[in-house]
Simulated assay, not measured.
Amino acid sequence: MKETYEGINHLDEDLKPVPLAKWEIEWRNILSISYMHLITPYAIYLMITQATWQTNLFAYILYVVSLIGVTAGAHRLWSHRSYKAKAPLQIILLIFHSIAHQGSAFHWARDHRVHHKYTDTDADPHNSNRGFFYCHIGWIFLKKNPKAIAKGKCIDISDLMADRLLQLQHKYYYFVAPSLCVLMPTLLPTVWGENVWNAFYINGFRIIFSLHSTLLINSLAHMWGAKPYEKDINPTENMIVSFFATGEGFHNFHHTFPQDYRAAELGGYKLNISRLFIDIMAKIGWAYDLKTVSEEIVEKRVNRTGDGSHPVYGFNEHTDLHIEYSKSQIRQKGT
């Protein structure tokens, strides 16, 4: 596939900011997301005082698998093609992604390619230069920026269009997603004796919490943190984001080397559950052709464009002393 979505041209005159006042409000998203925020305190109360431990555990499991569907599926597999997956794994990832209910994986991958091509310009669906609220959730409350729509038409998505499983989920998304994201998590807990309304409210909290965990990648990981690989872009290394978003907080690395399936260099599996999941799938033969960037290329990039904060090749922020590591120690830190 011709990866036309990698790279950026900030000098494009068409990308100059458009006043937000000219944009249209997406009332459906405002109402649905506001409702889930309103029920959150009551859902937390139910989790603490009434819900069974099985229901709380089930909500956490759904939280993790839904994020894996987004990060290992829509992001690393379909957006970047950083590895290949056999049909059983693709089906699992599409089910997981539907549980997250963040739009079809086709739409998610298409928009993410636009994000990488035009990062932090007005063609980026969630331009972080417009401030934290906008890039975190404000962009969802508005109809898509016309510039993002226009530039999106220039992105190569022929592989996405030709992917039969991806298109199948896209075609039936508004039946599949509500069934897996709302109906199943509400009814299944009644099997172990949970009150159906307890399950409904707790699942609503799970949905909004997983949404915010994903949105932190667009906001927190584009505004605060170190830039050991490329100091002249907004994306950063933010471990808070990795904790909540199953390993997506190594964002300066990811925007520098988007083809790497790990979306990280260091950290191993500690904060990168999505990488662990992909590696397990590789062990059983369902994931293959996993792409990585060599240590030599990473070191050269760090020395050429990094901000000096890399713990292996960089300089200690407080002492300015170079930290020496052997190649074996580098591998232990996450390669």
Rank of each mutant, 00 (worst) to 15 (best):
Trp286Pro: 00
Lys333Val: 10
Ile202Val: 07
Ala245Cys: 14
Val191Gln: 12
Asn195Phe: 07
Gly308Ile: 11
His112Trp: 03
Phe315Lys: 03
Pro88Gln: 13
Leu187Gly: 00
Gly314His: 08
Ile278Asn: 09
Phe141Val: 12
Asp260Lys: 13
Lys144Cys: 13
Lys117Cys: 11
Arg304Gln: 11
Cys181Glu: 01
Thr335Met: 10
Val312Gly: 04
Leu38Gly: 11
Thr4Phe: 08
Gln50Glu: 04
Ser98Asp: 08
Ile48Lys: 14
Lys153Trp: 08
Asn198Ala: 11
Tyr60Ala: 05
Val191Gly: 03
Lys283Ile: 14
Phe96Trp: 04
Val182Cys: 15
Lys86Glu: 11
Val191Arg: 01
Tyr229Glu: 08
Ile217Asp: 02
His37Tyr: 13
Ala148Lys: 06
Gly314Val: 12
Ala100Asp: 02
Leu165Glu: 07
Leu165Lys: 09
Lys16Asn: 04
Gln50Asp: 14
Asn145Tyr: 01
Asn145Ser: 11
Gly193Tyr: 02
Asn303Ala: 12
Leu220Lys: 07
His318Cys: 10
Phe96Ile: 02
Ile140Asn: 00
Thr236Lys: 11
Glu230Ser: 12
Asp124Ala: 15
Leu160Tyr: 12
Gln102Ser: 06
Leu266Gln: 11
Asn252Pro: 09
Glu299Met: 11
Lys333His: 11
Phe253Cys: 08
Tyr261Met: 04
Met281Ile: 05
Arg275Pro: 04
Ile68Thr: 01
Trp192Asp: 00
Trp197Gln: 03
Trp192Arg: 08
Phe277Trp: 13
Leu20Gly: 06
His170Ile: 05
Ser219Phe: 03
Asp260Leu: 09
Ile33Glu: 05
Gly138Pro: 09
Val196Ser: 01
Ala100Cys: 09
Thr214Pro: 00
Ala74Arg: 06
Phe243Cys: 02
Pro235Asp: 00
Tyr201Pro: 01
Ile25Pro: 08
Arg76Phe: 09
Ser294Ile: 04
Ile95Ala: 04
Asn9Ala: 15
His80Trp: 03
His310Val: 13
Ser210Phe: 02
Thr52Gly: 05
Tyr174Glu: 01
Phe257Arg: 05
Arg130Met: 10
Asn272Ser: 10
Phe106Val: 07
Phe253Ile: 15
Leu188Val: 14
His126Ser: 07
Gly73Pro: 15
Ser66Lys: 00
Ile30Pro: 02
Ile149His: 00
Ile137Trp: 07
Ile330Leu: 14
Phe175Met: 07
Glu324Ala: 13
Ile44Gln: 06
Lys144Ile: 13
Gly152Trp: 05
Ile48Gly: 04
Ala226Ile: 15
Ser66Thr: 06
Lys333Pro: 13
Gln169Ala: 06
Ala245Pro: 15
Gln332Asn: 15
Thr55Asp: 03
Tyr313Gln: 10
His115Trp: 03
Asp320His: 15
Ser328Ile: 07
Ser32His: 05
Ile8Lys: 12
Leu160Ala: 01
Ser79Ala: 15
Ile273Val: 08
Ala148Glu: 13
Leu89Asp: 05
Asp279Phe: 14
Ile330Gln: 14
Ala105Thr: 10
Gly193Gln: 09
His126Tyr: 12
His251Asn: 13
His170Pro: 11
Met281Cys: 15
Thr121Asp: 13
His170Gly: 09
His255Cys: 12
Thr236Trp: 12
Gly103Tyr: 03
Tyr60Val: 07
Met36Glu: 10
Pro189Thr: 05
Val64Leu: 07
Ile284Ser: 13
Ile30Thr: 03
Phe315Gln: 06
Trp108Cys: 05
Leu15Ile: 03
Glu317Trp: 11
